[in-house]
Simulated assay, not measured.
Amino acid sequence: MNPYLPFVTDWLIARWPYWNSAKATSAFAQLLGQEGGAAMAPYRHFEDKAALMGAVALKGFAMLEAEAARANEATDSGEALTAQGLADVGFARAHPALFRLMFADGAGLGLPHEDCHGAYALMTRQVAELAPNCAHAGALAC
């Protein structure tokens, strides 16, 4: 694993509201110029732009999973499921560009499923607990 990956992705996530994947190159130049860095510095740590965007999306999935895990702490399955749904919506509202990158812009869609489904897995477990005989019907077939 690239030792700079956590630093670079955390830096990008912290600045994500100021740019999106469609304007990444000019946004990097602007952001890095403001901080005294080289415009192409983040790319040095990744194979290409798609790998960089995938790493940022993967970090977003980890953040979403952490939010869902906090929501999952409710003792009642129904309350936990409701809290998880609210956490998902809250995450999307707090990080709209990152959410788009994860679910709509392609970077997140190309990641291995097992790396991205943690929050969804928590939700499906709650559905299975609430409706054990028909969990497949309520497990959001997406």
Results as ranks from 00 to 15, higher is better:
residue 119 A to N: 04
residue 95 H to D: 01
residue 14 A to F: 03
residue 31 L to E: 01
residue 60 G to R: 08
residue 43 Y to F: 15
residue 131 A to K: 10
residue 97 A to H: 14
residue 135 A to W: 13
residue 137 A to E: 12
residue 110 G to R: 06
residue 61 F to V: 08
residue 22 A to G: 15
residue 39 A to H: 02
residue 129 E to M: 11
residue 142 C to H: 15
residue 27 A to C: 04
residue 91 F to H: 09
residue 129 E to C: 12
residue 53 M to R: 08
residue 139 A to Y: 11
residue 84 Q to A: 01
residue 137 A to P: 01
residue 80 A to G: 03
residue 87 A to W: 03
residue 136 H to M: 13
residue 113 H to A: 11
residue 15 R to P: 09
residue 122 L to F: 10
residue 131 A to N: 12
residue 61 F to W: 07
residue 23 K to Q: 13
residue 89 V to K: 15
residue 65 E to Q: 14
residue 114 E to F: 12
residue 20 N to V: 00
residue 134 C to S: 12
residue 32 L to G: 07
residue 2 N to A: 06
residue 57 A to P: 08
residue 43 Y to Q: 04
residue 93 R to N: 14
residue 15 R to K: 09
residue 67 E to R: 14
residue 42 P to Y: 07
residue 101 L to R: 04
residue 17 P to V: 05
residue 94 A to E: 10
residue 85 G to I: 05
residue 57 A to K: 04
residue 110 G to H: 06
residue 18 Y to F: 13
residue 9 T to V: 07
residue 129 E to T: 14
residue 138 G to N: 02
residue 47 E to V: 13
residue 27 A to H: 04
residue 68 A to C: 09
residue 115 D to R: 14
residue 68 A to M: 09
residue 59 K to F: 00
residue 127 V to R: 08
residue 84 Q to L: 14
residue 134 C to H: 15
residue 40 M to T: 08
residue 39 A to C: 02
residue 8 V to D: 00
residue 59 K to N: 09
residue 124 T to N: 07
residue 102 M to N: 06
residue 132 P to M: 00
residue 113 H to F: 12
residue 38 A to D: 11
residue 27 A to L: 00
residue 91 F to C: 06
residue 54 G to N: 08
residue 35 E to S: 12
residue 36 G to M: 05
residue 135 A to S: 13
residue 78 G to C: 00
residue 2 N to Y: 05
residue 30 Q to A: 13
residue 112 P to T: 05
residue 85 G to Q: 05
residue 1 M to Q: 12
residue 23 K to G: 15
residue 107 A to F: 09
residue 35 E to V: 11
residue 95 H to Q: 11
residue 72 N to V: 02
residue 79 E to L: 14
residue 108 G to L: 04
residue 72 N to Y: 08
residue 30 Q to I: 11
residue 89 V to W: 11
residue 109 L to N: 10
residue 23 K to F: 10
residue 51 A to W: 11
residue 35 E to L: 11
residue 73 E to Y: 00
residue 98 L to Y: 05
residue 70 R to F: 03
residue 73 E to G: 00
residue 138 G to E: 00
residue 28 F to D: 01
residue 127 V to D: 03
residue 5 L to G: 03
residue 68 A to F: 11
residue 43 Y to P: 02
residue 2 N to Q: 11
residue 48 D to M: 02
residue 24 A to N: 03
residue 8 V to K: 02
residue 113 H to P: 00
residue 126 Q to T: 08
residue 9 T to P: 02
residue 27 A to R: 06
residue 35 E to C: 11
residue 20 N to K: 08
residue 114 E to L: 07
residue 67 E to H: 14
residue 100 R to G: 10
residue 57 A to I: 05
residue 24 A to M: 14
residue 79 E to S: 06
residue 61 F to E: 06
residue 88 D to K: 15
residue 35 E to Y: 07
residue 23 K to E: 12
residue 98 L to H: 09
residue 107 A to T: 04
residue 66 A to M: 10
residue 1 M to W: 01
